[in-house]
Design a protein around this nucleic acid. Structure first.
Lengths: 343, 343
DNA sequence: CTGTTAGCGCTTTCAG
DNA sequence: CTGAAAGCGCTAACAG
């Protein structure tokens, strides 16, 4: 059977021995020349590099990895269907590892434990140097266990086993930051509309909101309102809140989606934002935050930095002792027109 | 230097020779037993498998790949920062390849050609079996060239070289589908508000809209309106359109974002949707389409299927002759409340 | 049925 | 400075 050739010329990728033959040196010398070892005569190196160039030799990483015992690959195991969290984390990881030094296998388990095990096994078979597990909630998730041959770091969703290392955004600090911002904008009648109370994110953010209020000697206006993470709920909840507490002048929302809904209702009711009521969202999901009327102030979880940190931890765990516990990363306030009017 | 052990027990991953020794057979026999070859006595196989289980042996894919010349990995090279297109495509690819058979390296070039070359080289060094290039627009993008040792398929953004194989959604058909749906809803005064005219997507969808109108003997109300892909523009454009053509009863939007803006303005002006004006979006971006008032009918590009097809093409290109040209994939209408009122 | 041998492509001692 | 040889972990002939 004739090998169909891509038209590139060589029917097979060039190997080091091809280079060596062409340069008239041994394989060992070719290897040293190409890897920039200094035990090679300059003239020889030049000859080897030219030969390599000529047949467009690229070193086979598989062979290198097999020998080195390290592959320079990391597995990113996720259940984040939307990619909302996983993409910035992936980018942060790429950054931390340094351009092109490390490549990332992205596996989507789709919330299925079986599939997750499947992917985990595949990653281990491919001898990844480490694994980052990315969840889509900040609720603790089942640990992959302690008996894995490579370091594992849990990002966004922490592991339920304190023996694991987890990196997660500090939602409580975020809630506090949000309310402090409203207070600094001169608000004192502050309500809180959030999402599904089954989420740790919802509960933690509320704790932070209460922290901030208490520190200022304030109390929440009405009860914290929970239901689901949607614009629809944001609209309905805002209507309820405004009916019962017409004097509200600030609303901390549990997500940008909810905040968008809240903005809709405020507009329907003729309340000006931010003059009458200031609104702050959570997540800083650009597509939502920058397109609303007015644009939405929000809390950003610094996911890209989270990815960087997770990646760094994977690497330090390769060398040093493995740290454990949950690390809470600071969040960031992004101010837009929903809390401070444009001039 | 003492090797810090994760606590798992063995300080080194078990190899086939460990298994063979424990089972009291040769390495070759162990290999055959584990790979389910039938030239092994049942008793021997049992012994080997138990030994493997006992020391939790997992075959080293690197070694296998080195020998086989195929790695069972594919590179996904993207510039889709948001992950909006790349994630469904990744999922489709995983599906097509079969669970766990193939793993995907995801590389984000961030729109930088240098970084793209860097990643490309890294992928080739790792001996991926194929590459899928995912763009974030449907405009043709520069080809990676014909001189690559592995098959390359361009997904979403086609290559500018017809010698490459590209898979892209059929935007023209989508525009037509959208307008046909409005017509079938009884609309005849139809306007079009789209995004950046520098995008092929904007132009192609308009062509489709005109196709559909012409087939029904209709003409576009006013000029097609172009600017940018944002809600803000959608709001402004709708206001302009309604001012100049108060009798519009249907609006085809170039994106869901624009459609969201259009809905806002219609509500502000007191027009009922869909009774007075029916609105259809494009992309079926769930977060936008399912949270609007009313929910948004939209055109879905079937990105997951696009990923499946791209993956399949990579594989067939491995064996057979490599096809080329641009393949347009059908799109799908998703009907919600913005064109047909809920009962 | 089982074991021996060779070798995938590369790096690394260690003699010359 | 250069090259021969060993070997990373595995599979594929081929004898036995």
């Amino acid at each position: 059977m004739a090998r169909v050739d891509g038209g590139a010329g060589s029917s097979r990728a060039a190997t080091l021995s091809d280079v060596a033959r062409l340069a008239g040196v041994s394989i060992a010398t070719a290897s040293k020349a190409i890897n920039g070892r200094d035990e090679v005569a300059p003239a020889t190196r030049k000859r080897v590099l030219e030969a390599a160039e000529q047949i467009s030799f690229t070193p086979n990483q598989l062979a290198r990895s097999l020998l080195a015992g390290r592959t320079g690959t990391v597995g990113l195991l996720t259940s984040d269907l939307e990619g909302r969290f996983v993409i910035p984390i992936l980018m942060g990881a790429e950054d931390a590892f340094g351009a092109g030094q490390v490549n990332v296998f992205l596996c989507d388990a789709r919330g299925d434990a079986i599939r997750e095990q499947h992917h985990l096994k595949a990653l281990l078979n491919r001898r990844v140097d480490g694994i980052i597990v990315v969840g889509r909630q900040t609720d603790p998730r089942p640990s992959l266990g302690q008996h894995l041959p490579v370091p594992v770091v849990y990002a966004y969703a922490p592991s339920d086993d304190p023996a694991d290392l987890s990196i997660t955004p500090d939602n409580r600090a975020g809630g506090r930051l949000a309310v402090e911002h409203l207070i600094s904008c001169g608000r004192s009648r502050i309500g809180h509309i959030s999402g599904d109370p089954a989420y740790a994110a919802a509960r933690d953010r509320l704790l932070g909101v209460r922290d901030g209020l208490q520190a200022a000697g304030l109390e929440l206006v009405g009860d914290a309102m929970f239901s689901i993470w949607s614009e629809h709920w944001g609209r309905d909840a805002a209507a309820m809140l405004l009916t019962q507490h017409a004097d509200v002048d600030g609303i901390v929302c549990g997500s940008d989606q909810i905040a968008r809904g809240v903005l809709d209702t405020l507009r329907d009711l003729g309340r000006r934002v931010p003059e009458d009521v200031a609104v702050i969202g959570y997540d800083n999901w650009e597509i939502l935050a920058t397109n609303s009327r007015p644009e939405l102030t929000s809390i950003d979880a610094n996911l890209q930095q989270l990815g960087r940190v997770a990646a760094k931890r994977v690497f330090t765990a390769l060398d040093d002792e493995k740290p454990s516990g949950t690390e809470y990363l600071p969040v960031r306030l992004v101010i837009r027109g929903s809390t401070i009017a444009r001039r």
